[in-house]
């Protein structure tokens, strides 16, 4: 059908309603409505991010200095949260651990989003058989839980943040690719893409300068959501002893190391670390959801 647009759309654009709609349809993140919870989440995430950057610099004590005579001693003087089972300052370990935890999760999210959006955009661009092959491949990877892949990776490459992170990133990328592929397909079908193809623009320029920026809202949303997932999964992997290795401070490691204390009636270490994870992950997930629904709307 060739005349689906209402004759005379001219006036409607300059009308703010239509403009809002048009912007929602076309825009990325510019018009995300955060709401109170959203703002709270944003503040939480921002604070946590600041911690991750400056935490190790402002820590009051050496996080690895252990004094067994202080094992499981509660808050005491300038030791705001007291000590862990090895007599290390808990607050300092949380501060320092923030960076490892954030870096790990960010690494996973960035790699997964990069791989996923790359696959999504190429699949959408070339379409046809290439698209079918990519989609089928993604479905296979999709079937593997991230943790399982991380366990396998640890077995093959040895335990550690790098192999765990890479395994998670591989496991996550199909999620990203699926969401972004359908957005990229819609963008690919827009008349402006065809017009620029007719201008002789190459695939690189079109994908990187036009297609990808126009789905950037969803890309950021996916990254945010995965960041939350990654934080939880990395903690779980560390808990299993396959991720970040003790004595390095990391919230996941702290949950794991705190379990002995937990059993003996000294829950402070596990509890504070779990609380940090839960608060940050909830805030991040909430933000991610908001961004995603805004991005999805943009790609109705």
């Amino acid at each position: 059908m060739s005349v689906p647009v209402q004759a005379g759309v001219a006036a409607e654009v300059l009308d703010p309603v239509a403009e809002v709609e048009a912007a929602a349809v076309r825009g990325g993140l510019r018009r995300v409505r955060l709401g109170v919870l959203g703002w709270v989440s944003l503040v939480v995430v921002a604070l946590a991010a600041v911690l991750a950057v400056v935490g190790p610099l402002v820590r009051p004590f050496d996080p690895n200095l252990s004094d067994l005579s202080f094992a499981y001693v509660g808050p005491y003087g300038s030791h705001l949260l007291g000590f862990d089972g090895q007599g290390r300052d808990l607050f300092s370990r949380l501060l320092v651990g923030a960076r490892t935890t954030f870096l790990g999760a960010a690494f996973v999210a960035i790699v997964a989003v990069a791989v996923g959006s790359g696959l999504a955009v190429t699949a959408a661009w070339f379409g046809g058989r290439f698209d079918r092959v990519v989609s089928a491949g993604l479905d296979v990877v999709f079937a593997f839980p991230g943790i399982l892949l991380a366990v396998v990776a640890a077995a093959v490459f040895g335990a550690g943040l790098l192999s765990a992170g890479l395994a998670l990133a591989v496991a996550y990328s199909p999620y990203v690719a699926r969401v972004l592929r359908s957005a990229a397909l819609k963008e690919r079908a827009m008349a402006y893409v065809a017009a620029l193809e007719v201008q002789g623009f190459g695939a690189w320029r079109l994908c990187l300068r036009h297609l990808l920026p126009n789905i950037s809202g969803l890309v950021v949303a996916q990254g945010t959501i995965l960041f939350g997932f990654a934080m939880v999964d990395l903690a779980a992997i560390s808990f299993l002893g396959l991720g970040v290795q003790s004595p390095q401070a990391d919230w996941g490691v702290m949950v794991s190391e705190g379990k002995t204390g937990l059993l003996q009636g000294y829950p402070m270490e596990s509890l504070t670390a779990v609380l940090c994870i839960v608060v940050v992950v909830s805030a991040v997930s909430f933000l991610g959801d908001r961004l995603e629904s805004a991005g999805k709307q943009a790609h109705r």
């Binding site: 008349a191 402006y192 201008q199």
Partner: peptide, 27 residues
């Protein structure tokens, strides 16, 4: 090749029906 592609772009151009999807919204 790229040269031929852009040369064709200088010979024939097209304008589509829908003014709303014909432009990159970020440009």
């Amino acid at each position: 090749n790229a040269g031929e592609r852009t040369r064709r772009g200088r010979e024939v151009q097209i304008v589509f029906q829908d003014p709303y999807s014909s432009l990159d919204p970020r440009q």
